[in-house]
Design a protein around this nucleic acid. Structure first.
Lengths: 340, 340
DNA sequence: CTGTTAGCGCATTCAG
DNA sequence: CTGAATGCGCTAACAG
């Protein structure tokens, strides 16, 4: 049984004033005599008065709430994004309404609808991998609700974005591999539908180009290939592979397994770099070098942009590309190990 | 610029009926002529009418929203709890309002206040480690807002709980170690303030007792001891240790390091069991046996209990203790390896 | 400075 | 079956 909360009229009656006066006193509306104001404040405190944000939302047409849609909670990446978001929204006095798409377009659409219905003041989202429909995104824009998209891009939607610079992240990783002596570098690709996959692949190619290493199609594999292990294994035999750059840490671990099976030592014979810098990277043997995408920062920055948009709708759209950090561990050689 | 949404009165005017009629038609209020109803429904659809839950909340005094407070997002455990919760609340048509305490009592108190202010229909929470104040929890109860606490217990608060059976989880792990030949088993304890630490420790002791193995104080260590590694190292030399049961996977990894340094083989010389079954467990070498607490189920069940409480406040309180699952991997022996 | 009036969008009496 | 009236709790415009 929910207990009734004390309302602004309750304290108005008790003090023989009108609700408006109380409202003004409570909100520093200025035009209230100091004496009455003190009286009201005192009683409000005594009665444990707490304003009802629902009622306030109704009249002010804003909810102090921002909606978040992410594909899932379980990956460390999204946990960190979420933490980053929460850190800034909570400070700014905004509530977080959270939805999941489970990487399903249908659920994503439903989630956007839910958030729009809830009259959130703005929406943060990372859209699904499958990205062929975007009417629902356009609908958000049409509704006038600020929207900031994170990590993944939807070309057709003109809004603010915060992404990780996958191209440079990949470039730096492969560049490092080459600088530490690798020349025959395998790349294990990510899901075809993601822009991140494409960009990391491009970064890989660009690094090869910089060092005048010919791109070799035979060294590139699809991460979701069920025969990935076999193919890599075969590749190791027919090519003088000395480096591997994987789309993700998990794909890097797949490569780990193959190398171990083949009795190939890491990093002496083959260096490996993963992507995402999952906490696991520090616990495998040898510890995996990886590209950190700064997910916490991504969330925090995206939330900041959104808050700006909310507070001033005239704020120009932004496209932020976050610098990654190549975290070096034991799966790659260090410069000094390079034979001169 | 937020676009104005079409309201119930908009469509009422357009059809020359009153808002009440429209409301009734939309909510299957029954007493509306089929013809008008169809007309209203048609126009509502055409205009893209969506009910305003804020307004509805105000009159119905419920928000279809449930609040969640967790210490943090980053641990896999909480991610899974969150996923479990979301899976049931979204199906039931409830929104999720999320707050973090960062393991800080002050933030926790503030979060509860925020959720109460937001008039959530119920609250799910895992309270902070430090648990000396609980006025704010009592306040939730007093307000009549259903509350389900997860994972950690607050003795003073009489409400529904969903926890993991730490005692049995630990017992089974240690029992297994003993059954596979271990007798000198180290236990690395968790944070003193947590009931989970105590219960796992008790489970450890009980398993020893079952097998008539004397409890040896020298084999027990505090996980947060900065000299943990050194102490374990020393212990390995002065005792014929053949098993380790750690409060968490991360503490188990600490033990891993020590064993590797000492050149002790796992599990041939020493078996290890961790706790929480973090995904990392499958990636370390050797793969770590661990106790899975079923966090997804914990979240789902807690959400279910809360929903019941919300729908029928007379629902009796429940105290659910979830069975854990001992996940066996390569860091422990199998039965058949035991010398007969 | 303060009271009056009005309305945010909706559900729910109570009359007809 | 339907309309008119009322109120959820609060803010804001307008008088006084």
């Amino acid at each position: 049984m929910k207990k009734k909360r004390v309302s602004i009229t309750d304290i108005a009656k008790a003090l023989n004033v009108t609700p408006s006066t109380v409202s003004r006193a409570l909100n520093n509306g200025g035009k209230v005599s100091e004496k009455k104001k003190q009286q009201i404040l005192a009683l409000a405190k005594e009665l444990g008065y707490r304003p009802n944000p629902i009622a306030r939302s109704l009249v002010e047409n804003k909810t102090q709430t921002i909606g978040l849609i992410i594909p899932e909670f379980t990956h460390h990446f999204y946990s960190r994004v979420l933490a980053g978001i929460e850190s800034v929204t909570s400070k700014a006095g905004y509530q977080l309404l959270i939805c999941t798409s489970n990487e399903k377009k249908k659920q994503e659409i439903k989630s956007f609808q839910t958030l729009l219905d809830a009259r959130v003041d703005g929406i943060l989202a990372t859209i699904c991998k499958k990205n062929d429909e975007f009417d629902h995104l356009q609908e958000v824009l049409d509704s006038g609700t600020p929207l900031v998209l994170m990590d993944r891009i939807c070309e057709e939607i003109e809004t603010s974005y915060v992404i990780s610079d996958d191209f440079v992240g990949a470039f730096q990783a492969v560049d490092f591999l080459i600088q530490t002596g690798c020349t025959q570098i395998i790349h294990i690709k990510g899901p075809k539908v993601l822009s991140t996959s494409f960009n990391r692949f491009m970064g890989y190619k660009e690094a090869l180009k910089k060092h005048l290493i010919a791109f070799n199609e035979d060294l590139v594999f699809e991460g979701n290939d069920p025969e990935l292990a076999e193919k890599i294994s075969a590749c190791l035999k027919s090519n003088a592979v000395d480096g591997i750059f994987a789309y993700s840490d998990y794909l890097a671990f797949e490569a780990f397994k193959v190398l171990k099976n083949e009795g190939i030592s890491i990093p002496d014979q083959v260096s490996i770099v993963g992507y995402a810098d999952e906490p696991i990277s520090s616990y495998v043997t040898p510890q995996l070098s990886s590209v950190n995408q700064k997910p916490f920062e991504m969330g925090a920055i995206a939330a900041g942009l959104l808050l700006n948009q909310i507070q001033d709708p005239e704020t120009p759209l932004e496209f932020k590309s976050l610098k990654t950090e190549l975290v070096l561990r034991a799966s790659t050689k260090t410069f000094k190990e390079i034979p001169v």
